[in-house]
């Protein structure tokens, strides 16, 4: 009996030994995955959804948004800021590979909070073209996510059709952007979101890359501090109303779960 207890103690000690405290001198990676939803249903092109608030129906055909300037906070309070040049991602429902991305060279740690910007910060919006490569290349990944006549990135693009739209083609088009203006002040639709993982932690280790799973509920783009009705606003692009939509879309995002492998 004593032997059994002793061996149990030994085993539990050993178990603790297999999970050493994170060593901040070592680095690992973390994957962030976005899953798009409409209310409680998974987002799919061609599917018709009903907004319970307005009874409007809509069938999405495009959903893209920039997730940038990512920060991770560890349970001990340490904040890791992803180097800015590597911190621009375009989530595009049409491209499944874009729905998740890997952040590298993260100091080992138990992370329980993620912060990011929805959109492209004003500084990067005014950088020379040579510093807008990768996911910001407007001749590449970011094609269609830029206003060339009014220099600036489009942050969120959500399009589809709806019988409630009064547009000739019955479409709705929301192209939201605006970084605050270059020489004159204008609308700013850059929004920052912080999501806590609650009691969960993402254990980043040299040999363990956790995945943080986030949910984007597009229904909240309609239903937020402003009730967006397709019947009233089928097209919102660079306009003051964009601010209302930005105030709605900041709340589209929520934390769902983490996989520690």
């Amino acid at each position: 009996m004593l032997a059994i207890i002793a061996s149990t103690i030994v085993i539990s000690c050993k178990k603790n030994d297999t999970e050493p405290a994170p060593n901040p001198n070592l680095t690992g990676s973390l994957e962030v995955e976005f899953e798009n939803f409409v209310g409680t249903q998974k987002f799919a092109f061609g599917t018709t959804y009903t907004n319970p608030n307005t009874n409007e129906t809509f069938t999405p055909s495009m959903l893209r948004y920039f997730i940038t300037n990512i920060e991770l906070k560890a349970s001990n309070g340490t904040i890791f800021t992803v180097p800015q040049n590597d911190s621009y991602f375009l989530i595009d429902q049409e491209k499944p590979e874009s729905l998740k991305f890997t952040l590298n060279s993260i100091p080992e740690g138990d992370y329980n909070e993620i912060s990011f910007t929805i959109g492209v910060d004003s500084l990067r919006n005014t950088k020379p073209v040579g510093e807008r490569t990768g996911n910001l290349d407007i001749s590449g990944t970011a094609q269609g996510m830029y206003w060339s006549w009014n220099s600036g990135y489009i942050f969120v693009k959500f399009e589809g059709s709806s019988p409630q739209s009064t547009a000739v083609d019955q479409k709705y088009r929301y192209h939201i952007g605006g970084f605050g203006g270059y020489s004159s002040k204008t609308i700013n639709c850059v929004r920052k979101k912080t999501l806590s993982f609650g009691k969960d932690v993402a254990k980043v280790r040299t040999n363990a890359a956790p995945t943080v799973h986030l949910i984007t509920d597009v229904m909240k783009l309609f239903n937020g501090s402003t009730q967006l009705k397709i019947a009233d606003n089928n097209t919102v692009m660079f306009s003051p109303f964009g601010i209302n939509i930005a105030n709605n879309y900041v709340d589209m995002f929520s934390y769902d779960h983490v996989h520690n492998d």
């Binding site: 005014t126 073209v129 407007i138 830029y146 060339s148 006549w149 009014n150 220099s151």
Partner: peptide
């Protein structure tokens, strides 16, 4: 509307009533 000469040409190239071509 455009604040950098290097960004200028994008606008006439992509405008539907000017050159109507994607930069890509």
């Amino acid at each position: 509307g455009v604040f950098d000469l290097d960004l200028f040409a994008l606008a006439p190239i992509e405008a539907h009533n000017e050159m109507d071509e994607s930069i890509a």
